[in-house]
């Protein structure tokens, strides 16, 4: 008797663990995904432990004209910018902003776009048509241009930046979630849930979405990468994070005038963008292969 209850308890637990474990096992085999994970871990550490690495007020913000435009060396690993601020310190604090804005704006897009996509996919018919045709309008404007327009209207601030990047990514998430829901909603276990009288929102939240997570996770990972890129782009043209707050894109904009003799001034902040975006792309690609081995 006790054996039987034990085994009954064990079944769901082991099954759940093995699924995640399977994915992890496959992911671990991919060198590039591991490289991506290590890279993003380093950036996360930089973001979390930034105050231990550099002093925000003195190194990243305070102007120091005597030390302006110094080449990389022992005192300043990545040199100093046009205001004499330490570029390394500014990159470290910039990591916080980039990761934060990237994750929050994707969360906005995932919540709003995901809800719309799930409703459209689950109910189909007229509702589907209305939602998707409306999103076609958003899709007709290239993502970054939509974000630029929104920030231009609302004004440049970190909140508006996240709203803009978030909204401009809504149609993408709606499409992915809709496709995922469509592929699963006619399966037998959904029918079974309906048959025992589950409500629609319970079915969507408890049965449909958990079973269509794979493509959504992959898409979200890749979108955090492009949101980080969008943040830097908007800041570069003066519509994102405003100076003197250290942000990679606005560091590039500030250093632009000095590239003739000080190329390091744009080299390192740019490399920070490339490496962060690259690491997320590597993880996204690796996850896609690990979650759906058929595609490889």
């Amino acid at each position: 008797m006790s054996d039987r209850t034990l085994s009954r308890k064990m079944i769901p637990a082991t099954k759940k663990r093995s699924q995640a474990l399977d994915v992890w096992k496959r992911l671990r085999k991919s060198n590039s995904a591991i490289a991506g994970l290590i890279l993003i871990f380093i950036f996360l550490c930089l973001a979390v432990f930034a105050p231990l690495i550099a002093d925000y007020e003195n190194d990243a913000l305070k102007m120091n004209i005597i030390e302006r435009l110094q080449s990389p060396g022992a005192d300043h690993w990545f040199g100093t910018d046009e205001m004499g601020r330490d570029i390394f310190a500014r990159i470290v604090y910039g990591t916080r902003i980039s990761l934060f804005v990237g994750v929050i704006s994707v969360s906005i897009a995932l919540t709003l776009g995901g809800t719309l996509g799930a409703i459209a996919g689950y109910y189909g018919g007229k509702i589907d048509n209305i939602i998707m045709r409306t999103l076609d309008v958003l899709l007709a404007i290239p993502t970054i241009l939509l974000a630029i327009t929104i920030v231009a209207a609302l004004g440049a601030s970190i909140l508006n930046l996240m709203i803009a990047v978030g909204i401009s990514n809504i149609p993408g998430f709606a499409r992915v979630v809709r496709a995922a829901v469509l592929s699963i909603k006619d399966q037998e276990f959904i029918e079974a849930a309906r048959a025992i009288g589950s409500r629609d929102h319970t079915i969507i939240l408890k049965h449909v979405l958990p079973n269509s997570m794979a493509p959504i996770i992959v898409f979200a990972t890749l979108k955090v990468a492009s949101a980080i890129m969008a943040t830097a782009s908007l800041s570069f043209i003066g519509l994102g994070i405003q100076p003197p707050t250290p942000e990679w894109g606005s560091m590039l904009a500030g250093g632009r005038a000095y590239i003739r003799d000080n190329m390091y001034i744009v080299l390192y902040p740019g490399l920070a963008i490339v490496l962060t975006v690259l690491s997320l792309n590597l993880i996204g690609d690796g996850l896609r292969d690990a979650l759906d081995p058929k595609l490889k």
Partner: peptide
């Protein structure tokens, strides 16, 4: 993959 990860304004500057 690196090409996808490079922001165009930075590539341009380089």
């Amino acid at each position: 993959l690196i090409g996808i990860s490079m922001p165009s304004f930075w590539t341009g500057l380089i």
